[in-house]
Design a protein around this nucleic acid. Structure first.
Ligand code: FES
Ligand code: FES
Lengths: 171, 171
DNA sequence: ATAATACTCTACTAATATTGTCAAGTATTT
DNA sequence: AAATACTTGACAATATTAGTAGAGTATTAT
């Protein structure tokens, strides 16, 4: 249960490949496809979406490819996944597009909401930079757990979110 | 993305209905169906699975129905969901049944693993008792966040899990 | 210019998983 | 023995995911 789409997974891995060379030469789609063992056609679809979301930029012509639009520490995993798979919506009731009439009287509503925010908090706090430095994942988790944050963007996503960001399922 | 199946959702709500009357008379499937607005046939399927997992027991004959097998504080949401939808497996690589050869060389592996454990920790720490008391969800979250746990079962699921439970994707 | 390289876009199909229904059967109690 | 209620397995409808195909556009090196 709670499966992540391959699109999302490939997207994150592709972004990682692009981030590896940042700042530097554009990364060709062909190269990413080879490294990550995904078809070029499928990757095109994915990168195209990411480009439209403004996370990457493309350079055409020979020697062209993709570049990060921002610094690695300014691109969170959460953003990448949302761009490709839409917002996290554990249940139909939590989906901003659908909403639920009963929400107030429903016990599980709070439960799913809390979980959703917890997940989103994690994904928004984790950036490409964290992936690049690799071993920082464990450290970061410890930080998250111990109530402190390591990298810039993260502060927005942590503690505050858990208690203040309530405008989501309200509909 | 990261949708929870209706099966899982209905299952949790059904368990909640059963827990409401605990300890006491068995709860008829018909009653649950009416309260939660789910078809009897679908619920039968769900409750049957839960019974086989040992979370509930059934009483036959007139006046029969379903009862909790354990105390509400001993039944976690995580257990309910795993029973109905199988283990949490964000990616194929994290799935205990599949595993991944590349796991060691893959950056995102740690990421999904960490997220999966975070989710599982949350779901295992949350019990039917918490749903019954309702307002404790917020409090519990605060507890979780602040590094302490409120109810029995929870201790197993929290801090330890984040740093020690590593046998999952190892395959 | 023009060929080679590389990104862009839309549509479509195949596979899979989810969601839920149906019907016949078994057990228990009044 | 009749009513109630759980039990089981098969199956159909639907939705989503995953991935392919192919035609097209832009850019640059020569
Ligand atoms: S039924 Fe919509 S929030 Fe529970
Ligand atoms: S490809 Fe299997 S862990 Fe990354």
């Amino acid at each position: 249960m709670l499966k992540l789409s391959t699109k999302g997974q490939y997207g994150v891995r592709a972004m990682f490949e692009i981030a590896r060379r940042h700042p530097g030469e554009p990364v060709a789609i062909k190269e990413i496809a080879a490294r990550q063992d995904v078809s070029v056609a499928y990757l095109e679809q994915i990168l195209n979406t990411l480009r439209k979301s403004g996370l990457i930029a493309s350079v055409r012509g020979p020697g062209g490819g993709y570049l990060l639009s921002r610094q690695p520490e300014e691109i969170s995993i959460g953003e990448i996944l949302r761009s490709l798979d839409g917002p996290i919506a554990l249940t139909a009731c939590q989906d901003p597009m659908e909403g639920c009439v009963r929400a107030d009287g429903c016990v599980t509503s709070l439960l799913w909401k809390a979980l959703g925010e917890k997940i989103e908090g994690f994904l928004d706090a984790m950036t490409l930079r964290d992936l690049l430095t690799g071993n920082s994942i464990k450290q970061k988790q410890k930080d998250l757990y111990g109530h402190k944050y390591a990298s810039g963007e993260a502060q927005k996503a942590g503690q505050q979110m858990f208690f203040e960001k309530t405008g989501k399922a309200g509909a």
